[in-house]
């Protein structure tokens, strides 16, 4: 995959969406995705939605909006992909959708408020986010980017958000 071929619209509209588990790195995923809606249909939680116009030529590809419904890592979608846009992985720990990033400005824990919702609800149970000595959440490289933390963050504008891997 040539790195220069990034497509037209992402350059215009900026952000890359958060992809389903097992997704190939972004430009390649958008190229391989056939918009068959099978992963979206397979998702038992209605997590996956087709991308809208604002994603330009990537419209129709599946994406996750974690604040609405995060990925619960049931791993139902990777095996149904016909083109290999999703690697057929079954181990939720192998998923690399994105990386959770904490905003210390709004995170309760950074203000001395004992809040552990993101750490408690993390499906990887302490591996992907842990509390440091000052009980602030620290994300590790084990983070799969499922977005459960972003979903449950009690701060009105979530203080922990998943940055899609393709956005890095």
């Amino acid at each position: 995959m040539k790195a220069s071929r990034r497509g037209l619209f992402p350059a215009l509209c900026g952000r890359v969406p958060l992809r389903p588990p097992g997704a190939r790195p972004e430009p390649e995923f958008a190229a391989l995705c056939i918009r068959c809606n099978r992963c979206i249909t397979a998702c038992p939680y209605k997590t996956l939605k087709p991308a809208s116009w604002i994603y330009g030529e990537r419209a129709g590809t599946p994406l996750v909006v974690p604040r609405k419904i995060p990925c619960y890592l049931c791993m139902a979608c990777p095996p149904v992909c016909p083109t290999g846009a999703l690697d057929p992985i079954t181990d939720k720990r192998a998923v690399r959708m994105g990386l959770a990033v904490v905003d210390p400005e709004s995170c309760f824990a950074h203000q001395g408020i004992l809040c552990r919702t993101c750490v408690d609800e993390c499906p990887l149970e302490g591996e992907a986010i842990y509390q440091d000595g000052e009980l602030k959440p620290v994300v590790t490289e084990k983070c799969v980017g499922c977005g459960v933390c972003e979903k449950v963050c009690p701060v009105a504008e979530p203080a922990i958000v998943v940055r899609p891997r393709g956005d890095q």
Partner: peptide, 19 residues
């Protein structure tokens, strides 16, 4: 490289300011 870019992204997000 992945780790470094992730670490940088995370640190930069934190840069926006402590309360």
């Amino acid at each position: 490289e992945f780790l470094e870019s992730a670490a940088a992204a995370s640190a930069l997000a934190a840069l926006s300011g402590l309360p």
